[in-house]
Amino acid sequence: MAKKVNVGAVIHGVEDMRMEQVPMPTPRDNEVLLEMDCVGICGSDVHVLTHGGFGEYKLRQPMVIGHESSGVVIGTGKSVKRLKVGDRVAVEPAIGCKVCKLCKAGRYNLCPDGIYSATPPIHGTLQNFYTHVEDCCFKLPPNVTMEEGALLEPLAVGVHSCRIAGIQLGSNVLILGAGPIGMVTVLVAKAMGAAKICVLDLVQSKLDVAKEIGADVTLQIKKGDKEEDLVKKIHQLLGVAPDISIECTGAEPCVRLGILATEIGGVLTLVGIGSTNMNLPITIALVREVEIRSGFRYANAYPAALTMVANGTIDATKLISHHFDLKDSVEAFKTSRYGLDGAIKVMIHCQPRNKNNPGKKM
């Protein structure tokens, strides 16, 4: 029997990603060994390549990238009981310590000792084989494809953000940014009962997709637009001031606009990660009691995301714009980074496409 060779996309430094052989992992007692199938490219992955990390997480040694992923179990540790060889799973990349106060409260995304795939120095999933703890692998039902399994990661961000924002039946929602996170937020907000959704972005083609997947109205903004004019346009498009705004870009102008456009007593939830320091109209938020909340990654959101995909409430596949083989990962990152050919979500296949999708042709 031929020896398995593991190849991964390794970032060595800024603008330096190489496809090369990496060690074959061995599962620990509570882990499964996965043959990876699909890995989506996230903006944070691109940021590691272009800036050598993000925030306090700095790339100090070569690291395999990737964290939006699905795979097939091909081996199990001796303590694994729920999963078996052959199971198709989505991989939740966040692992808390399970014993601290935050983990015990269910907020493992904030665990100070937690780890997260493809966050320096932790290796990611964009490789042929990968090991992961059993309880962070979610078995996919037969009607959910491997691509959809990989999309559960960004969808989980949307679930977490909408929960924190408090979206409910009848909410009027403003979503700032039509990138992948803005898009999944549209999908989830609509599924949670939002009455009307307005999405704004700089790029009209992205807004067109947002409209296709559930946005009721969209607004293309341009550099130099006056804040007061944009606020008026948002209110006109929605018919009211949004009671909930979700900021998905991290850009200072959008955070400012979120504060100014949200109705008195409303909620602004910050999801996009931008500059550490910003010039914001905090006093306006204070006197209007605009509550500013924040959502970091997700916690306990994978089951809801998987359920909505499995029962057909959400079709996230419309967000996949490009497909690449693992060997072409460098080109895939280029496509995602520069938004080539209208790129939204770029999917990398570590196996032949549809190999592990029941009823699908390869």
Rank of each mutant, 00 (worst) to 15 (best):
Q204V: 03
N311F: 09
L187C: 10
V7H: 07
S321T: 15
L126H: 01
V287Q: 12
C97H: 07
V32C: 12
P281R: 13
Y57Q: 03
L169I: 11
G13R: 11
P242D: 06
C254F: 14
L230E: 09
N354K: 04
A165R: 01
C42H: 03
E228K: 08
K222D: 03
L155Q: 02
V173L: 14
L219F: 02
V173W: 06
Y298C: 05
E227D: 15
I11P: 00
V85N: 02
I284Q: 11
Q351C: 15
M63Q: 11
P253S: 14
C198T: 07
K84A: 12
K222Y: 06
K58H: 10
G339P: 02
D325E: 10
V32L: 05
A299C: 15
I244G: 02
T307I: 04
L280V: 15
V217A: 12
Q236M: 09
I314Y: 01
D29R: 14
V346H: 00
E92H: 05
A9W: 01
A316M: 01
A194V: 00
P62Y: 11
I234N: 04
T125K: 04
R18Q: 14
G170A: 06
T26R: 12
L270D: 04
E15W: 02
E252Q: 14
V32K: 06
T249H: 05
A316P: 00
I282G: 00
